[in-house]
């Protein structure tokens, strides 16, 4: 296995790993939203501005979970494609070697068709992989967008929390947890993008 193939396997496998962490964090945001809603309800008028924010937080968490679920399915397709490309490349190399070793054999020329076919299959796989990586990077960008939105919501939450009197601490804790989660999502997704960007279709 070449170093490039190894890197490709590692890059694709790391997506699933990074995204499973994102999924955990997104579920934590969802819980934080439910918690915030309960606090805001108890706080009544003192947390009036906070109530619609909890709905935003919840919606954002749900969308992130949905996006990550889809990306995970896509990452699995990408992994299968990597295996396929690896097998096709190995076959092409073996076929070329067989053709070289068969030089002088009566039927040596008949090997040309399998060699050509293997080369085309391998190149198809490589092109498909690059196309799929580009699409996956687009989906990851959508998750990044959600993470940025979550940070804006966290900033607004802090402002609204400051008006909530005795509920200030509880609501600020919610805002902090949303902000922290947004950071984690941003960092993990950014690592996925860096790992994949070298395979992007140029």
């Amino acid at each position: 296995m070449t170093n490039q193939t190894k890197s490709q396997f590692i890059a694709v496998a790391s997506i699933t790993s990074e995204l499973s962490a994102v999924m955990v964090v997104a579920k934590e945001i969802s819980l934080a939203a439910a918690n915030a809603k309960a606090i805001a309800f108890r706080a009544g008028d003192k947390a009036k501005g906070f109530q619609p924010i909890t709905d935003f937080i919840n919606e954002l968490a749900k969308e992130t979970i949905e996006l990550v679920t889809n990306i995970n399915i896509y990452a699995l397709v990408l992994y299968r494609l990597t295996v396929d490309e690896f097998q096709k490349t190995a076959a092409y190399n073996k076929f070329e070697l067989a053709a070289k070793m068969a030089e002088g054999a009566v039927y040596a020329k008949s090997m040309q068709e399998p060699v050509d076919h293997a080369r085309l299959s391998m190149q198809d796989c490589q092109r498909q992989f690059k196309r799929d990586v580009s699409q996956l990077l687009g989906q990851l960008e959508a998750v990044m967008h959600h993470a940025r939105a979550a940070r804006v919501i966290a900033a607004n939450s802090r402002i609204e929390a400051s008006q909530a009197g005795e509920y200030l601490q509880s609501l600020q804790a919610v805002a902090e947890s949303v902000d922290k989660a947004a950071h984690t999502i941003h960092d993990n997704v950014q690592r996925c993008r860096i790992a994949l960007s070298i395979y992007r279709n140029s």
Binding site: F95, A98, K100, A105, V106, Y107, S110, M111, P114
Partner: peptide, 19 residues
């Protein structure tokens, strides 16, 4: 085995075409 594919294919081509 897989390791033997290329020499085996090359050897067979002395006796028969791939198809």
């Amino acid at each position: 085995g897989a390791e033997l594919f290329a020499p085996m294919m090359a050897a067979v081509l002395h006796h028969a075409p791939v198809d």
